[in-house]
Amino acid sequence: MDPFVVLVLCLSCLLLLSIWRQSSGRGKLPPGPTPLPVIGNILQIDIKDVSKSLTNLSKIYGPVFTLYFGLERMVVLHGYEVVKEALIDLGEEFSGRGHFPLAERANRGFGIVFSNGKRWKEIRRFSLMTLRNFGMGKRSIEDRVQEEARCLVEELRKTKASPCDPTFILGCAPCNVICSIIFQKRFDYKDQQFLNLMEKLNENIRIVSTPWIQICNNFPTIIDYFPGTHNKLLKNLAFMESDILEKVKEHQESMDINNPRDFIDCFLIKMEKEKQNQQSEFTIENLVITAADLLGAGTETTSTTLRYALLLLLKHPEVTAKVQEEIERVIGRNRSPCMQDRGHMPYTDAVVHEVQRYIDLIPTSLPHAVTCDVKFRNYLIPKGTTILTSLTSVLHDNKEFPNPEMFDPRHFLDEGGNFKKSNYFMPFSAGKRICVGEGLARMELFLFLTFILQNFNLKSLIDPKDLDTTPVVNGFASVPPFYQLCFIPV
């Protein structure tokens, strides 16, 4: 058959498939802009700032609406009420993970971030239990974070109060905490193996944040037939998995079943207990991918939040002064901060919360999916439909947070200066898919920041009023603009 005829037939089939998918069930789905064949609503979305586009569309179609990214149908949730109703009140029905062709290629359905069903539930339950087990290797997770915080302070001392970009050092600290939990080992910041790991993690975040990856996920045929950065992403992930597998083999040879040292040991012990169960989800494949998931999810998000926190503290020296006064009063100079201190430091706690609220790190979270046909607000959402959640619409709700575009710790303080919780605080998402490392991340943010401010004054290279804190939105995360500062020993 003539190649031209084959091409026309293929394009015609794709067009018909697109029209059929977009028209099927439209009477039951939430409203939304009319999609174009094949490309859907992509032309109506700013790929570099999806969150802003969703906010604009919500003003037209309401808090629940339908979009098509290519052939992929998505239902968008915008605003606290619908997000709570879906992710919390109907948590089980909305607990699936959205379709990610690239991740599915890399992870093969294993791990904790992109798995679904029984596998996801069992691996998540085990990971939560293990991360909360403060007795691994007779050292609590808090001990590990405190140790890394001391190392971080010593690295900052080496800058000798000269101007520096904190990106690298602030990236090393949370990565080392995860390494300590998974591998029972922290690395020197100049260790070549550690630097290679950091390089792969950072490069992957840069790649994932590009519009090209959005295109690959919406048109998965590209993955096999086109060159691009997605190939580098898959190569980096394969490198990390190979490295983790080597460490798993080392653990198998040296493990003491009665004295687990780290996450890998705990997983291997669980595998041993379930070795007679042919349906067990505790396999080497799941261990390797879960460890890679924890490394990827637990490094860049925390380091970016820390980097943004220091920029905001530079911009608002009056806030920094209040935090340091609270540190001096509650902790002093002669001991290290600990998590028990947080309950006695409402202002510092409010500042950490406000940093996370203000920066809105992951504006749309990772997409969910419905696990069955769901009736939601008089609409029928078919099983498997991807759910896109606007966390921006919750964290920047102007009824809950007056002047949401302003950095103001009073958003989390009552009139008496006591810490005030808010149900709208969802930087880790909400419901059954809430970030498994939430507790660890909150511990790291509090301890790293208090250790830094206990030991250093922060000095800006320019007038604080002239510092730009506008986030650089890159399609996946909101990151701070480049800046330098000086760490002046107190």
Rank of each mutant, 00 (worst) to 15 (best):
P31G: 06
F194A: 07
K275P: 09
N418T: 09
Q279D: 11
G79D: 06
Y68F: 15
I182T: 06
L14Q: 00
M406A: 12
Q193C: 11
R119G: 09
L71R: 15
L156C: 08
E274Y: 08
L413C: 04
R119Y: 05
Y189T: 06
D373E: 09
N56S: 12
K399M: 12
A369V: 11
K52T: 12
F263L: 10
T34N: 11
S365R: 03
G416Y: 15
T385D: 01
E253K: 13
F69C: 09
V352T: 06
N116A: 06
A297F: 12
C10T: 12
P35T: 06
A309G: 12
I223F: 11
P317K: 08
T305M: 04
N41I: 00
N258I: 07
I434H: 09
T210S: 15
F412L: 01
P471D: 05
L156T: 02
I327G: 01
G91R: 07
D373M: 04
V50G: 03
K185C: 10
N107E: 05
V64C: 11
R206N: 14
T389K: 01
R73A: 07
G117E: 08
D165L: 02
D408F: 04
I215C: 09
S23T: 13
G25P: 15
S365A: 12
K247R: 14
I39A: 08
T385C: 08
D188I: 06
K138N: 08
I19M: 15
F65I: 06
K399C: 12
S162T: 13
S58L: 00
P402K: 11
Q454C: 00
A86I: 00
G296T: 14
F425D: 10
D468R: 12
I181P: 00
F94G: 02
P166L: 03
R261T: 06
C172H: 09
L54F: 12
N56C: 13
T55R: 10
L131G: 03
D2P: 10
C338T: 15
R21L: 11
P382A: 05
D293K: 02
L234T: 07
A309T: 10
M406E: 14
K121I: 09
F226N: 03
K399H: 13
F126S: 00
S336R: 13
R132M: 14
